[in-house]
Design a protein around this nucleic acid. Structure first.
Length: 411
DNA sequence: CATCCACAGGAAACGCTGGGCA
DNA sequence: TGCCCAGCGTTTCCTGTGGATG
């Protein structure tokens, strides 16, 4: 008997559970797709086309729907000799300004023509916009420009002002740009400057979160392809759907849950994926998210986390920010690191709150002690120590916290 | 019922980096 | 070579907040 034997396989083909998988039909979005189709129709008719904006939280099908519509549009456009169509896709995930979006867009356009990329720094914004118009003008007909996760650019929305007006302002002559903006943030619309709002809000399509029934209907065909027959217990898909619907209404979350449940079952070398696997998967994914969040903090973030962990270990929680800051400064001294201002530490704390790592309580004791926040860890102290111990420079304080926690029986 | 505490968090500005251009 | 550009992490400055208090 060898050391390795092939496990029982629960997966037939895990691809339908991958983030990058593109299903051949899109479920539970008939109304949205119909609206989307009507909005794009003028391109085929060679009529002026409005810009389109899609709103909805992550995992509500905006990106998938757009990929789906564009591939049909490109395909069908070839049927008409007088329809000239190109598409560009820019994911703004790591782009925080109009400037960066413009540079990425230029490089995307240049790449498709085999030209060299331009540098991401050094130019003035106007210079980049001029290059962008130049590149666009070399295309004829309609160019559909997809700006995915456009809410990342925040208030820097110049590009959303410039691009839609490029033609009417005479910056481009031969090309008709159509913007498809995709945003995870409903608020983004409100925060746009007024002059941008009316041109972009021409056609809006809202993608609401999925409910449990819809998620089931999305999961079922994928589950059928991904798993071997009779491997999934009947409750597995509904439970994944229910968990995801309760939490975010995100299809992505539901699919990840299903895959993780499958992987846990696989690791167990069992013949069936059960409800318990789904519950474990839910815990596992949640844990991973927090763990990653902690690991990706900066050194300063770790120092702040370390200070809070110390207070947790000696049982002095929740801590008000003033005391926490003093502790943080001491830790920095001990580590021979620079300390940042109190204001900046408040930002770090607010980031950690966003990640779900800590809890914040607002206190107000009037004129005796005023208004302040109190903080406490929202993850097990053990997990924080694990991360700190594995992070360079933090072994020593982590060990001190560890023994303090041992003394107080807090582990 | 106005007062006032003690901080929260917005805004601006700074210093530095990496790059273009004449 | 020297000046210009945008952006990031941060500091500095300051206004806003809401309930116990007198």
């Amino acid at each position: 008997m060898g050391m390795f034997q092939r496990d029982r396989q629960v997966f037939a083909d895990a691809e339908p559970l991958d983030d990058s998988y593109e299903p051949e039909d899109i479920r539970e979005r008939d109304e949205e797709l119909e609206k989307y189709k009507r909005a794009l129709q003028p391109i085929i008719d060679n009529r002026p086309t409005s810009n389109i904006f899609l709103y909805g939280k992550t995992g509500t099908g905006k990106t998938v729907a757009t990929k789906f519509m564009l591939s049909h549009l490109e395909n069908d456009a070839t049927e008409y000799d007088d329809v000239e169509l190109s598409t560009v896709w820019v994911s703004c995930e790591n782009l925080s300004s109009s400037y960066q979006v413009a540079v990425t867009l230029v490089n995307e356009l240049r790449e498709s023509k085999g030209k060299d990329r331009i540098s991401t720094t050094g130019y003035s914004q106007q210079r980049v916009f001029d290059i962008l118009y130049e590149e666009l003008d070399e295309f004829g007909g309609t160019v559909v420009i997809v700006l995915d996760e456009i809410d990342n650019i925040g208030h820097s929305d110049d590009i959303l002002y410039g691009l839609p007006r490029a033609r009417s302002n005479g910056y481009v002559e031969d090309v008709r740009p159509v913007i498809v903006g995709i945003s995870n943030d409903f608020q983004f619309r409100e925060n746009l400057s007024p002059k941008v709002k009316d041109t972009l809000a021409e056609k809006e399509i809202l993608f609401p979160p999925y409910d449990a029934n819809q998620l089931r209907s999305i999961l079922n065909p994928r589950a059928e392809k991904a798993f071997h027959d009779d491997v999934l217990n009947d409750d597995v898909v509904p439970l994944c759907a229910a968990f995801a619907a309760q939490d975010t209404g995100s299809a992505r979350q539901a699919i990840r849950l299903l895959r993780e449940a499958g992987e846990l079952a696989q690791a167990d070398d069992t013949e069936a994926v059960t409800e318990d696997h789904v519950r474990d998967a839910q815990d596992e994914l949640e844990k991973n998210q927090l763990y990653e969040g902690m690991q990706e903090l900066t050194t300063q973030g770790h120092a702040v986390l370390c200070a809070l962990a110390y207070h947790q270990a000696i049982g002095e929680v929740p801590v008000r920010s003033r005391d926490l800051y003093q502790r943080y400064v001491k830790i920095c001294e001990r580590l021979d690191a620079d300390n940042v201002s109190e204001r900046r530490v408040r930002d770090h704390l607010s980031d950690m709150n966003m990640l779900g790592l800590i809890s914040v309580y607002e206190r107000n004791e009037g004129l005796s002690a005023g208004r302040y926040h109190e903080y406490e860890l929202n993850v097990p102290l053990k997990a924080v120590l694990e991360v700190l111990l594995s992070t360079n420079r933090f072994e020593e304080p982590a060990n001190i916290i560890q023994s303090a926690a041992d003394d107080n029986n807090l582990l």
